[in-house]
Design a binder for these strands. Structure first.
Lengths: 126, 126
DNA sequence: CGACGTTAGATGCACGCGCATCTAATGTCT
DNA sequence: AGACATTAGATGCGCGTGCATCTAACGTCG
Protein backbone atom coordinates (compact mmCIF):
# COMPACT_ATOMS: atom_id res chain seq x y z
CA UNK A 1 0.00 0.00 0.00
CA UNK A 2 2.56 2.56 1.05
CA UNK A 3 4.73 0.95 -1.58
CA UNK A 4 2.06 1.60 -4.15
CA UNK A 5 1.56 5.15 -2.98
CA UNK A 6 5.29 5.73 -3.14
CA UNK A 7 5.36 4.33 -6.64
CA UNK A 8 2.60 6.65 -7.78
CA UNK A 9 4.24 9.61 -6.11
CA UNK A 10 7.52 8.83 -7.81
CA UNK A 11 5.79 8.60 -11.16
CA UNK A 12 3.82 11.75 -10.56
CA UNK A 13 6.94 13.74 -9.81
CA UNK A 14 8.75 12.19 -12.76
CA UNK A 15 5.85 13.23 -14.97
CA UNK A 16 5.81 16.77 -13.66
CA UNK A 17 9.56 17.19 -13.79
CA UNK A 18 9.85 15.77 -17.28
CA UNK A 19 7.13 17.95 -18.71
CA UNK A 20 8.48 21.04 -17.04
CA UNK A 21 11.95 20.58 -18.49
CA UNK A 22 10.86 19.19 -21.84
CA UNK A 23 8.47 22.06 -22.41
CA UNK A 24 11.10 24.71 -21.71
CA UNK A 25 13.71 22.83 -23.71
CA UNK A 26 11.47 22.39 -26.69
CA UNK A 27 10.57 26.05 -26.73
CA UNK A 28 14.09 27.34 -26.27
CA UNK A 29 15.59 25.05 -28.90
CA UNK A 30 12.88 25.97 -31.35
CA UNK A 31 13.08 29.71 -30.85
CA UNK A 32 16.83 30.03 -30.77
CA UNK A 33 17.91 27.34 -33.19
CA UNK A 34 14.88 26.08 -35.07
CA UNK A 35 15.31 22.60 -33.67
CA UNK A 36 12.88 20.12 -32.20
CA UNK A 37 13.95 18.28 -29.09
CA UNK A 38 14.05 15.09 -31.13
CA UNK A 39 16.13 16.78 -33.78
CA UNK A 40 18.58 18.03 -31.20
CA UNK A 41 18.81 14.64 -29.54
CA UNK A 42 19.45 13.03 -32.90
CA UNK A 43 22.19 15.51 -33.73
CA UNK A 44 23.59 14.97 -30.26
CA UNK A 45 23.82 11.22 -30.84
CA UNK A 46 25.53 11.72 -34.15
CA UNK A 47 28.12 14.22 -32.98
CA UNK A 48 28.92 12.59 -29.68
CA UNK A 49 29.49 9.12 -31.08
CA UNK A 50 33.06 8.51 -32.25
CA UNK A 51 32.11 7.60 -35.78
CA UNK A 52 29.82 10.12 -37.36
CA UNK A 53 28.11 7.56 -39.53
CA UNK A 54 25.32 5.63 -37.85
CA UNK A 55 22.82 3.29 -39.22
CA UNK A 56 19.20 4.19 -38.54
CA UNK A 57 18.78 1.07 -36.52
CA UNK A 58 21.76 1.81 -34.28
CA UNK A 59 20.45 5.32 -33.78
CA UNK A 60 17.02 4.05 -32.89
CA UNK A 61 18.39 1.77 -30.20
CA UNK A 62 19.90 4.65 -28.27
CA UNK A 63 16.81 6.82 -28.62
CA UNK A 64 13.36 6.96 -27.20
CA UNK A 65 11.69 7.50 -30.55
CA UNK A 66 9.72 4.99 -32.57
CA UNK A 67 11.21 3.86 -35.85
CA UNK A 68 8.82 5.97 -37.90
CA UNK A 69 9.38 9.08 -35.79
CA UNK A 70 13.14 8.72 -36.16
CA UNK A 71 12.78 8.29 -39.90
CA UNK A 72 10.85 11.53 -40.19
CA UNK A 73 13.17 13.35 -37.83
CA UNK A 74 16.09 12.42 -40.05
CA UNK A 75 14.12 13.54 -43.10
CA UNK A 76 13.62 16.93 -41.49
CA UNK A 77 17.30 17.16 -40.63
CA UNK A 78 18.20 16.24 -44.21
CA UNK A 79 15.89 18.92 -45.56
CA UNK A 80 17.56 21.39 -43.24
CA UNK A 81 20.97 20.35 -44.54
CA UNK A 82 22.17 19.25 -41.14
CA UNK A 83 22.50 15.58 -41.94
CA UNK A 84 22.98 13.29 -44.94
CA UNK A 85 21.63 9.90 -45.81
CA UNK A 86 23.88 7.34 -47.49
CA UNK A 87 23.01 3.89 -48.68
CA UNK A 88 24.96 1.11 -47.06
CA UNK A 89 26.88 -0.83 -49.68
CA UNK A 90 26.94 -4.13 -47.84
CA UNK A 91 23.25 -4.19 -47.09
CA UNK A 92 21.41 -1.89 -49.41
CA UNK A 93 18.37 -1.80 -47.21
CA UNK A 94 20.43 -0.05 -44.56
CA UNK A 95 20.87 3.70 -44.40
CA UNK A 96 23.79 5.58 -42.93
CA UNK A 97 23.16 8.91 -41.33
CA UNK A 98 25.99 11.41 -41.21
CA UNK A 99 26.20 14.91 -39.77
CA UNK A 100 27.21 17.67 -42.12
CA UNK A 101 29.46 20.51 -41.05
CA UNK A 102 26.38 22.71 -40.85
CA UNK A 103 24.90 20.11 -38.56
CA UNK A 104 27.91 20.15 -36.29
CA UNK A 105 27.80 23.92 -36.14
CA UNK A 106 24.09 24.02 -35.35
CA UNK A 107 24.53 21.42 -32.68
CA UNK A 108 27.39 23.31 -31.09
CA UNK A 109 25.22 26.42 -30.83
CA UNK A 110 22.20 24.57 -29.56
CA UNK A 111 24.26 22.75 -26.98
CA UNK A 112 24.67 25.99 -25.07
CA UNK A 113 20.95 26.58 -24.92
CA UNK A 114 20.42 22.98 -23.96
CA UNK A 115 22.80 23.22 -21.02
CA UNK A 116 21.44 26.49 -19.75
CA UNK A 117 17.84 25.29 -19.83
CA UNK A 118 18.81 22.13 -17.97
CA UNK A 119 20.64 24.20 -15.41
CA UNK A 120 17.64 26.43 -14.93
CA UNK A 121 14.85 23.87 -14.81
CA UNK A 122 16.21 20.46 -13.90
CA UNK A 123 15.96 19.88 -10.19
CA UNK A 124 19.19 18.33 -8.83
CA UNK A 125 17.27 15.73 -6.84
CA UNK A 126 15.59 14.38 -9.97
CA UNK B 1 32.29 20.53 -16.86
CA UNK B 2 31.68 17.42 -14.79
CA UNK B 3 28.71 19.31 -13.39
CA UNK B 4 27.43 19.89 -16.89
CA UNK B 5 28.05 16.30 -17.87
CA UNK B 6 26.20 15.12 -14.79
CA UNK B 7 23.33 17.41 -15.64
CA UNK B 8 23.08 16.06 -19.14
CA UNK B 9 23.33 12.48 -17.90
CA UNK B 10 20.57 13.12 -15.42
CA UNK B 11 18.37 14.58 -18.11
CA UNK B 12 19.16 11.79 -20.51
CA UNK B 13 18.13 9.14 -18.03
CA UNK B 14 15.03 11.09 -17.08
CA UNK B 15 14.12 11.26 -20.74
CA UNK B 16 14.66 7.56 -21.28
CA UNK B 17 12.88 6.50 -18.13
CA UNK B 18 9.93 8.77 -18.75
CA UNK B 19 9.40 7.61 -22.30
CA UNK B 20 9.76 3.99 -21.36
CA UNK B 21 7.10 4.19 -18.68
CA UNK B 22 4.83 6.62 -20.49
CA UNK B 23 4.82 4.53 -23.62
CA UNK B 24 3.83 1.36 -21.76
CA UNK B 25 1.29 3.21 -19.66
CA UNK B 26 -0.32 4.87 -22.62
CA UNK B 27 -0.64 1.59 -24.46
CA UNK B 28 -1.95 -0.40 -21.51
CA UNK B 29 -4.51 2.22 -20.51
CA UNK B 30 -5.70 2.55 -24.08
CA UNK B 31 -6.01 -1.16 -24.76
CA UNK B 32 -7.59 -2.17 -21.49
CA UNK B 33 -9.72 0.86 -20.68
CA UNK B 34 -9.86 3.12 -23.70
CA UNK B 35 -8.17 5.94 -21.84
CA UNK B 36 -5.39 8.31 -22.75
CA UNK B 37 -2.74 8.97 -20.16
CA UNK B 38 -4.02 12.54 -19.93
CA UNK B 39 -7.55 11.32 -19.53
CA UNK B 40 -6.55 8.95 -16.75
CA UNK B 41 -4.55 11.64 -14.99
CA UNK B 42 -7.51 13.99 -15.20
CA UNK B 43 -9.87 11.39 -13.77
CA UNK B 44 -7.29 10.68 -11.09
CA UNK B 45 -7.24 14.31 -10.06
CA UNK B 46 -10.98 14.46 -9.90
CA UNK B 47 -11.49 11.30 -7.88
CA UNK B 48 -8.60 11.78 -5.50
CA UNK B 49 -9.46 15.33 -4.55
CA UNK B 50 -11.91 15.60 -1.63
CA UNK B 51 -14.48 17.61 -3.50
CA UNK B 52 -15.36 16.08 -6.82
CA UNK B 53 -16.11 19.40 -8.44
CA UNK B 54 -13.11 21.24 -9.75
CA UNK B 55 -12.83 24.30 -11.83
CA UNK B 56 -10.83 23.92 -15.03
CA UNK B 57 -8.31 26.39 -13.78
CA UNK B 58 -7.73 24.53 -10.53
CA UNK B 59 -7.34 21.32 -12.48
CA UNK B 60 -4.88 22.90 -14.84
CA UNK B 61 -2.68 24.05 -12.00
CA UNK B 62 -2.09 20.53 -10.75
CA UNK B 63 -1.48 19.15 -14.22
CA UNK B 64 1.23 19.24 -16.78
CA UNK B 65 -1.12 19.97 -19.66
CA UNK B 66 -1.63 23.24 -21.45
CA UNK B 67 -4.96 24.96 -21.02
CA UNK B 68 -6.14 23.98 -24.48
CA UNK B 69 -5.06 20.36 -24.09
CA UNK B 70 -6.92 20.11 -20.81
CA UNK B 71 -10.01 21.63 -22.36
CA UNK B 72 -10.02 19.03 -25.12
CA UNK B 73 -9.26 16.22 -22.70
CA UNK B 74 -12.29 17.17 -20.66
CA UNK B 75 -14.37 17.32 -23.84
CA UNK B 76 -13.33 13.77 -24.64
CA UNK B 77 -14.20 12.63 -21.12
CA UNK B 78 -17.58 14.34 -21.39
CA UNK B 79 -18.28 12.59 -24.69
CA UNK B 80 -17.39 9.31 -23.04
CA UNK B 81 -19.79 10.08 -20.22
CA UNK B 82 -17.10 9.92 -17.58
CA UNK B 83 -17.30 13.54 -16.56
CA UNK B 84 -19.73 16.43 -16.61
CA UNK B 85 -19.34 20.13 -17.17
CA UNK B 86 -21.34 22.56 -15.06
CA UNK B 87 -21.41 26.31 -15.31
CA UNK B 88 -20.32 28.13 -12.19
CA UNK B 89 -23.15 30.30 -10.92
CA UNK B 90 -20.99 32.90 -9.26
CA UNK B 91 -18.72 33.43 -12.22
CA UNK B 92 -20.39 32.21 -15.35
CA UNK B 93 -17.14 32.12 -17.26
CA UNK B 94 -15.96 29.37 -14.95
CA UNK B 95 -16.67 25.70 -15.58
CA UNK B 96 -16.95 22.99 -12.97
CA UNK B 97 -15.83 19.53 -13.87
CA UNK B 98 -17.38 16.64 -12.03
CA UNK B 99 -16.82 12.89 -12.28
CA UNK B 100 -19.83 10.77 -13.03
CA UNK B 101 -20.35 7.38 -11.43
CA UNK B 102 -19.26 5.83 -14.71
CA UNK B 103 -16.12 7.92 -14.46
CA UNK B 104 -15.41 6.68 -10.95
CA UNK B 105 -15.90 3.11 -12.06
CA UNK B 106 -13.65 3.47 -15.07
CA UNK B 107 -10.99 5.10 -12.96
CA UNK B 108 -11.14 2.34 -10.38
CA UNK B 109 -10.55 -0.26 -13.07
CA UNK B 110 -7.80 1.68 -14.78
CA UNK B 111 -6.07 2.29 -11.49
CA UNK B 112 -5.14 -1.38 -11.31
CA UNK B 113 -3.52 -1.29 -14.73
CA UNK B 114 -1.79 1.93 -13.83
CA UNK B 115 -0.24 0.44 -10.72
CA UNK B 116 0.86 -2.75 -12.37
CA UNK B 117 2.54 -0.94 -15.25
CA UNK B 118 4.35 1.35 -12.85
CA UNK B 119 5.48 -1.65 -10.85
CA UNK B 120 6.76 -3.34 -13.96
CA UNK B 121 8.53 -0.45 -15.68
CA UNK B 122 9.36 2.26 -13.19
CA UNK B 123 12.86 1.80 -11.88
CA UNK B 124 13.00 2.32 -8.10
CA UNK B 125 16.05 4.55 -8.35
CA UNK B 126 14.26 6.99 -10.64
C1' DC C 1 -24.91 53.41 -17.88
C1' DG C 2 -21.21 52.69 -21.68
C1' DA C 3 -16.33 51.89 -23.19
C1' DC C 4 -12.29 49.27 -22.30
C1' DG C 5 -9.02 45.99 -20.30
C1' DT C 6 -9.02 41.27 -18.27
C1' DT C 7 -9.99 36.54 -17.37
C1' DA C 8 -12.00 31.53 -18.17
C1' DG C 9 -12.50 28.35 -21.57
C1' DA C 10 -13.17 26.90 -26.44
C1' DT C 11 -11.38 26.46 -31.03
C1' DG C 12 -8.59 26.85 -35.74
C1' DC C 13 -4.26 25.42 -37.11
C1' DA C 14 0.11 23.22 -37.93
C1' DC C 15 2.99 19.67 -36.30
C1' DG C 16 5.25 15.55 -34.26
C1' DC C 17 3.99 11.06 -32.73
C1' DG C 18 2.84 5.88 -32.83
C1' DC C 19 0.59 2.23 -35.33
C1' DA C 20 -0.14 -0.25 -39.28
C1' DT C 21 1.24 -0.95 -43.73
C1' DC C 22 4.09 -0.75 -47.87
C1' DT C 23 8.41 -1.32 -50.55
C1' DA C 24 12.69 -3.13 -51.48
C1' DA C 25 16.61 -5.79 -50.37
C1' DT C 26 18.28 -10.14 -47.66
C1' DG C 27 18.05 -14.79 -46.09
C1' DT C 28 16.57 -19.51 -46.30
C1' DC C 29 14.99 -23.89 -47.70
C1' DT C 30 13.97 -27.11 -51.21
C1' DA D 1 17.11 -20.81 -59.44
C1' DG D 2 12.24 -20.00 -57.40
C1' DA D 3 9.03 -19.30 -53.49
C1' DC D 4 8.41 -17.55 -48.97
C1' DA D 5 9.58 -15.42 -44.55
C1' DT D 6 12.31 -11.57 -42.66
C1' DT D 7 14.39 -7.14 -42.08
C1' DA D 8 15.48 -1.86 -42.87
C1' DG D 9 13.28 2.17 -43.67
C1' DA D 10 9.52 5.05 -45.67
C1' DT D 11 4.78 6.48 -45.65
C1' DG D 12 -0.63 6.96 -45.02
C1' DC D 13 -3.45 7.90 -41.28
C1' DG D 14 -5.67 9.44 -37.10
C1' DC D 15 -4.78 11.71 -32.86
C1' DG D 16 -3.17 14.62 -28.98
C1' DT D 17 -0.45 18.76 -28.28
C1' DG D 18 0.89 23.79 -27.91
C1' DC D 19 0.30 28.36 -29.77
C1' DA D 20 -2.46 31.94 -31.16
C1' DT D 21 -6.85 33.57 -31.38
C1' DC D 22 -11.79 33.97 -30.45
C1' DT D 23 -15.91 34.39 -27.47
C1' DA D 24 -18.30 35.45 -23.48
C1' DA D 25 -18.52 37.03 -18.86
C1' DC D 26 -16.45 39.66 -15.57
C1' DG D 27 -14.27 44.14 -13.52
C1' DT D 28 -13.16 49.16 -13.60
C1' DC D 29 -13.28 53.87 -14.42
C1' DG D 30 -15.27 57.80 -16.63
Amino acid sequence: MSTEAALVDQWRSLLTCYNEVACHLERALQESHGLTLSEFETLDRLTTQDCDKRRMQDLAETMYLSQSALSRTVTRLVNAGLVERTHCELDRRGIFVQVTSAGRARHAEARQTHLSVLGAHLKPAG
